[in-house]
Amino acid sequence: MCIHGRLIMQNQKLPCVLINSFEEPYYVNEDHVADLKKQFNLVTMQEFLENKTHFSQEIQAIYLWGGKPVIDKELLQSLPTLEIIVSSGAGLDHLDLNLIASFGVKLANTPHAVTNSTADMGLALLLASARRILEGNEIATSPDTKSFSINWMGQEVTGSTLGIIGMGRIGYKIAQRAKAFEMKILYHNRNRRKMEEEQAIGAYYCAKLDELLQQSDFVLLVPPLTPQTYKMIGKRELGLMKPTAILINIGRGQLIDQDALVEAFQTGIIKAAGLDVTYPEPLPRSHPLLKLRNVTLTPHMGCGTHQCLLLMKETMVESLLAALSGLPIPNEVRLK
């Protein structure tokens, strides 16, 4: 019998799960709500705050979609029956893992679900930035355009050098895609990949980040955000890059010193950037990055495909049901 079947037999009522909201902007995906309601009693943060006395003894799990609701000490103290938090996506930088562990609460995320869609996004930004797709679209659709210049050019991708910073699941998938473009692949990672994994994609390990930055035509960031990677690309690092280099960030905005990045564009240190992530999100409407034609910005949509979101939901539900049934939890995050 499946996990869901055993759970229903064991419980006369549906498990109580805390979510953020059914409304914009941080809401459970509306396409998933009907299915979730078949398996769980969904309680919004507003409902919880209006009736803490009742729900504090009922809620067994938190369904964290898009990083909301915020998990802090006050919330955890008010949920004595909480067993598990399931978080969408792979990143955990929005969570205090030590705090969660101190309350004896389990945690699971969805690292495998986002791999392909985020890798696709990284390559899409690389191609769009290199070939100046957005600028080209502006020219092609402008009412002022009378003719197309034959000398309007982008940058060749095929045969160029790609430097990947962070060769985890997503980084490796990007390398696989880049191989089809006959790119030379360099990578810098906390731990070196196995030799057979390097050979499969033709990747070369750079123990020193500086070596990768100096040689790469494209630098793509996809490491997790940690104290060690915070603003890992600053003024010094940008200065090491080729003046023709393009920087792509699909990790976290705080991996880059944005003030240094703006200065790099203003002084011609690097050529262009494609950023799916910034800090804050969204940027203030007056931010200088919004005014630069050689910066392609997208709204943190790396995992934004129907297939990815569905797989995240299914993965989160699987982990929830396993935890509430006392079974091994898929994708459990081992807390300290």
Results as ranks from 00 to 15, higher is better:
Ser147Ile: 00
Val28Glu: 15
Val70Asp: 05
Lys194Glu: 14
Lys235Val: 02
Phe148Lys: 10
Phe22Pro: 05
Gly166Ile: 02
Ala175Gln: 03
Ala101Arg: 12
Ala128Glu: 09
Tyr26Leu: 10
Leu212Val: 04
Gln46Ala: 13
Lys13Cys: 04
Gly253Ala: 10
Gly66Asp: 10
Gly122Met: 09
Ser160Phe: 00
Pro25Leu: 12
Ile133Asn: 07
His32Ser: 14
Phe22His: 15
Pro224Thr: 03
Arg190Met: 06
Glu83Leu: 09
Pro328Arg: 05
Ala245Ile: 09
Cys2Met: 08
Ile19Phe: 08
Gly154Met: 04
Asp210Val: 00
Ala113Thr: 02
Leu255Trp: 03
Gly89His: 07
Pro143Arg: 01
Arg236Ala: 12
Leu186Tyr: 13
Met316Glu: 06
Gly171Val: 05
Met316Gln: 12
Tyr204Ser: 14
Met9Lys: 13
His287Ser: 05
Ala273Thr: 03
Leu275Pro: 08
Lys235Tyr: 05
Asn151Lys: 14
Leu238Thr: 10
Leu324Arg: 06
Leu247Pro: 03
Met45Tyr: 08
Lys291Pro: 00
Asp257Ile: 04
Gln60Arg: 14
Leu134Asn: 12
His94Phe: 10
Lys336Leu: 11
Arg252Phe: 06
Thr226Gly: 03
Met167Lys: 06
Lys68Cys: 14
His306Lys: 13
Phe103Lys: 06
Lys242Gln: 13
Ile150Glu: 09
Leu75Asp: 09
Val114Ala: 07
Pro15Arg: 12
Val43Asn: 09
Asp72Asn: 14
Asp35Trp: 05
Leu97Gly: 11
Leu220Gln: 01
Ala124Phe: 07
Leu321Met: 14
Trp152Thr: 02
Pro330Ser: 12
Arg177Pro: 01
Gly326Lys: 02
Ile164Met: 10
Asp72Leu: 00
Thr141Leu: 15
Glu156Arg: 15
Ile256His: 06
Glu263Lys: 13
Phe218Cys: 08
Ala130Leu: 05
Leu335Asp: 12
His306Phe: 08
Arg131Ala: 02
Ile256Asn: 05
Lys106Gly: 07
Thr115Trp: 03
Leu310Lys: 14
Gly5Leu: 12
Thr315Lys: 04
Glu332Phe: 02
Gln199Phe: 01
Tyr205Gln: 07
Ala175Thr: 01
Lys73Ala: 10
Gly104Tyr: 09
Ser142Phe: 02
Gly91Pro: 06
Thr44Asp: 09
Ile71Asp: 02
Phe22Arg: 15
Gln254Pro: 06
Ala90Val: 14
Ala178Thr: 00
Leu212Ala: 06
Glu50Trp: 00
Met195Gln: 15
Ile233Val: 14
Lys73Met: 01
Arg190Asn: 06
Thr298Arg: 10
